[in-house]
């Protein structure tokens, strides 16, 4: 079972709910792993007491220009859909940060002057926590491509924790990184808040999931603020609302101290029970 926690809007509680749920499932005796896929700013590890077990270097393939046989025909720059290659009159410039590793330039180069070579983009870390493991993808500073590292972090998690429940904490938004974090999962839980802003971004996320033909449900976080817009939308669109997490300043206080919420706040724990029950009914 693999479940992605996504949202449209940032700051709706993906990490808060996924870290707490993972810990809660572990305490119930389940084999569970949490993967932090917000590789541009991973922070799940801040909320989980853990020790580092293993670090793997993450590489990406990108072309390297070899001058010798190059005819400077410019075919490479022409076929690149991502503006990663600039053909100058006397040289070919490659910008690996922009490369999507599609191999088009390398394969179509008539003189084989752009061999694909690996270069480091970040790290995958595995942490051992109380009863479960945490896998974190972390992009190096200056790197712009989150997708390859997200894919590798999921692959690592699948390979090393094949029999566990996998909770994936996705980045916010609705672009490529979110799609990569969602498309291979059994179910996606979209976390939103009942404000006009939350609703606007929820709609974008729902449209994204529909294009992916992905099964999904909604959690309304900070329930009690804003208006009824999200509830009405979910009702009209027939989207299941898995739970409503009460708006509570005490939750924010615990979050700001980097502490788990459910051991101290009953209504939050009840919401986790709703999620566990919902997940249990998915199979």
């Amino acid at each position: 079972m693999k479940i992605t926690f996504a949202s449209g809007k940032g700051g709706t509680g993906k990490t808060t709910i996924s870290t707490n749920l993972t810990s809660y499932l572990a305490r119930m005796g389940k084999s569970v792993v949490l993967a932090d896929l917000d590789v541009e700013e991973p922070n799940a590890a801040l909320f989980i007491k853990s020790t580092l077990k293993k670090t793997e270097i993450s590489n990406k393939m990108s072309p390297k220009w070899e001058e010798v046989d190059c005819a400077l025909c410019g075919k490479c720059a022409e076929v690149c859909n991502f503006n990663a290659i600039v053909a100058m009159p006397e040289e070919i410039l490659v910008f690996p940060e922009l490369c999507h590793s599609c191999y088009a330039c390398s394969e179509l180069c008539p003189t084989d002057s752009l061999p694909m070579t690996p270069s480091r983009i970040g790290e995958i870390k595995e942490f051992k926590a109380d009863g479960f493991s945490l896998v974190e993808g972390r992009l190096d500073l200056g790197q712009e491509m989150a997708v390859p590292l997200i894919a590798q972090t999921i692959e690592y998690t699948d390979k090393n924790f094949s029999d566990s429940i996998k909770i994936l904490d996705a980045p916010p938004g609705t672009s490529c990184p979110v799609i990569e974090a969602s498309r291979g999962s059994d179910f996606v839980i979209l976390i939103t808040e009942s404000t006009p802003f939350g609703l606007n971004d929820l709609k974008l996320a729902v449209e994204t999931m529909k294009v992916l033909k992905q099964k999904f449900g909604v959690i309304i976080n900070r329930y009690g603020i804003g208006n009824k817009g999200v509830q009405e939308y979910c009702r009209d669109e027939n989207i299941p609302i898995i739970t409503k997490v009460q708006n509570d300043k005490e939750v924010a206080k615990l979050y700001s101290k980097g502490e788990l919420i459910y051991p101290q706040i009953e209504h939050f724990k009840n919401s986790l029970d709703d999620i566990v029950k919902f997940i249990g009914g998915l199979k």
């Binding site: 991502f82 503006n83 990663a84 600039v86 100058m88 910008f95 922009l98 712009e144």
Partner: peptide, 12 residues
């Protein structure tokens, strides 16, 4: 319409 690399194309 370019997500990335607009500066490179413009510079060229």
């Amino acid at each position: 319409s370019m997500e990335h690399g607009a500066g490179l194309q413009t510079a060229q």
